[in-house]
């Protein structure tokens, strides 16, 4: 009985820790990446929420923010980068393009939605989403990690 209580608490603490120490991957594709940089910047400063350690290598990171249009030429490379990330790993699909093709959905060389390539945890709408929206997505992801809704 006491064992199980201890186990739950540890698990919870672990989940809480995971949520609050996300290391995003510096990975910009298109216009949305500029808004992602704004979210990092001094005005929005998302370091407040414990996700400020932007990593340049997929092997150090555990959050991939797909910010921009996914083209057919880039998609296999995104998959490869995703595969290189260590578990636990999460994906935020930022903007209309990454979520569903956006304004380019009728084009011939655009993948309509990054969820065809990698599993996505949170979608953010907007073209581009405002930095506030991205921060909200981050908060949502953190909450669902902490409450155990998202596991990888």
């Amino acid at each position: 009985m006491t064992d199980s209580i201890l186990l739950t608490t540890l698990d919870e603490a672990l989940r809480w820790g995971k949520g609050k120490s996300l290391w995003p991957f510096t990975f910009g594709l298109a216009c949305c990446a500029i808004e992602m940089m704004s979210a990092m910047g001094p005005d929005y400063d998302w370091a407040r929420f414990g996700a400020d350690v932007f990593r340049d290598s997929p092997r150090h990171a555990d959050l991939m923010i797909v910010s921009g249009t996914v083209t057919k030429k880039m998609a296999p490379r995104i998959r490869r980068l995703y595969d290189q990330m260590a578990f636990p790993k999460y994906v935020i699909s930022m903007g209309a393009c990454a979520s569903a093709g956006g304004p380019y959905v009728r084009g011939y060389s655009v993948v309509d939605g990054v969820d065809k390539v990698v599993p996505v945890d949170i979608y953010v709408y907007g073209c581009p989403p405002r930095p506030e929206a991205l921060i909200q997505a981050l908060k949502q992801l953190q909450d669902s990690i902490a409450s155990g809704k998202v596991r990888h």
Partner: peptide
């Protein structure tokens, strides 16, 4: 290059 080819010219013609 070409990793962000988004067909702007074709879509504008459509």
């Amino acid at each position: 290059i070409g990793y962000l080819h988004r067909n702007a010219e074709k879509l504008s013609e459509m």
